[in-house]
């Protein structure tokens, strides 16, 4: 089997796993409390064990991952679009706009990430909305910088200058020549931003700045579990934590695979 076939198969597998987790989580009912089953260690019936209220941890983990995926996808999607717009504007506007954008990128990157997400999410009204806004407004910088550089390079091409001489407008050049050229970069950037967003979401929720406690988010599960670790209930933290890490690694791998396929150098190998 050629590398290309294997890469495509891997991408398909990862997408199926992620979609499966998301759909399963969305379709499931919340794990119900059952005090007769409380604090059970992992067994066939409850592979991830149960918590103090007798809720099945597997159900809670899948629900939590599903929520994280939703928040992550929304946040990184919106963030990537912001990056695309800002990056293209900076490269096109040159002068004042470019300076302003660069200043803004430096500013955003200069403040420690976690701190900035916390500040923005509190300012935006906490809860999942605050969290979403916080992640959106902090994750666009790296991609915006890449896009800006790429656009600067493309617009110095002779065919752009020629298009202008054929009477084509700046809008035409941007939408026909430049943006299509950027799309592979954009999608790779988006996918690679995805795990970041999920980690920040969970991290912040764990610290108590993110999702409200009644949501079944992974961060909530982990922070609850912390309290019972010392009492020997290791399964409360290990399985949800491991599931989160696996999910993040899978998405990262997905990004790498897509990059491999879209990159003209590696695409023919």
């Amino acid at each position: 089997m050629s590398r290309r076939v294997m890469t495509i198969a891997l991408i398909a597998a990862i997408v199926i796993i992620i979609a499966g987790v998301y759909i399963a989580g969305a379709a499931m009912n919340d794990a119900s409390a059952d005090f007769s089953q409380k604090s059970l260690s992992p067994s066939w019936e409850h592979p991830f064990g149960t918590d103090l209220l007798g809720r099945d941890m597997l159900t809670r983990t899948i629900k939590g991952l599903s929520l994280s995926l939703f928040v992550g996808l929304t946040a990184s999607g919106v963030s990537a679009i912001i990056a695309l717009i800002i990056g293209v504007c900076a490269a096109f506007g040159r002068g004042v706009i470019d300076h302003f954008v660069n200043w803004l990128i430096d500013l955003t990157m200069g403040i420690p990430h976690t701190l900035l997400v916390i500040l923005i999410s509190i300012a935006a009204g906490r809860g999942w909305r605050g969290l979403l806004i916080g992640i959106i407004f902090t994750h666009w910088t790296g991609l915006a910088r890449i896009i800006r550089g790429e656009v600067l390079q493309i617009r110095s091409n002779h065919y752009i200058a020629a298009a202008r001489k054929f009477g084509r407008s700046g809008w035409w050049i941007m939408s026909r020549h430049i943006v299509p050229h950027m799309l592979p970069q954009f999608f790779i950037g988006l996918i690679l931003m995805f795990p970041h967003a999920i980690m920040h979401e969970s991290g912040l929720t764990f610290l108590g700045f993110g999702m409200p406690p009644e949501q079944p988010a992974i961060g909530i599960i982990l922070s609850e579990a912390m309290r019972y670790l010392s009492s020997g209930m290791w399964w409360l933290a290990i399985f949800p934590g491991l599931a989160l890490v696996i999910m993040v690694v899978l998405i990262d791998k997905l990004g790498e695979c897509v990059k491999l396929l879209l990159d003209p150098v590696s695409a023919q190998e």
């Binding site: 050629s2 290309r4 495509i8 695409a267 023919q268």
Partner: peptide, 11 residues
């Protein structure tokens, strides 16, 4: 000669 992908997986 070069082995190239034409469309999708056709080589």
């Amino acid at each position: 000669s070069f082995r190239m992908y034409t469309k999708g997986l056709e080589r």
